[in-house]
């Protein structure tokens, strides 16, 4: 692996995918690997918006949530790997996002925020935005062409 560093691991519930942050040549980018082969899988929407941090995967890996840089702001996004779409989750006004956690079914997200110098956690319902990705659901390796 040379001088590449890996951190912030997240496993899909079915154990087939591992998301993590790869630090290479000064860049922190999210990578997605099939397990146990280690084969890298493409992510359509996240290139060019590094640094990334705090990835999370849903049960079958349909959804990859991550924090990414957009201009001067860090924003939480969810890539729907089945539909090839990107959903942006705006942070509450005046707060910066530090970490996130996505529920295994993709129906809830928790954001760790810093606001007024204090760390706090807020929870959001995504059930109106994302279809559930439940245990035993469709296996997703490569996104559709």
């Amino acid at each position: 692996m040379g001088s590449e560093q890996r951190r912030d691991p997240a496993l899909s519930g079915n154990g087939r995918l591992l998301a993590s942050i790869s630090d290479r040549q000064g860049r922190s980018s999210v990578i997605l690997q099939e397990q146990p082969s280690g084969r890298l899988l493409p992510l359509r929407h996240l290139r060019g918006h590094s640094p990334h941090r705090s990835p999370a995967l849903s049960w079958n890996g349909r959804y990859l949530a991550v924090l990414m840089q957009q201009g001067m702001q860090t924003v939480a996004v969810v890539e729907d790997r089945l539909r090839g779409q990107l959903l942006r989750l705006p942070a509450p006004a005046g707060a910066s996002v530090e970490r996130l956690s996505l529920a295994p079914d993709g129906q809830t997200v928790a954001l760790q925020l810093v606001q007024g110098g204090q760390q706090r956690v807020q929870v959001f319902d995504l059930s109106g935005l994302l279809e559930p990705d439940r245990a035993g659901g469709q296996r997703i390796s490569d996104p559709p062409p």
């Binding site: 956690s101 295994p104 760390q119």
Partner: peptide, 30 residues
């Protein structure tokens, strides 16, 4: 377009409890 909906009652409770970090979600657990 549709927006994420804050779990207001829960968030208020979390805020009153003080500083929190490192959330990890299960299906109905955090």
């Amino acid at each position: 377009g549709p927006m994420p909906i804050p779990r207001s009652g829960l968030n208020r409770q979390l805020e009153q409890a003080g500083g929190n970090r490192d959330p990890s979600l299960g299906l109905r657990w955090m």
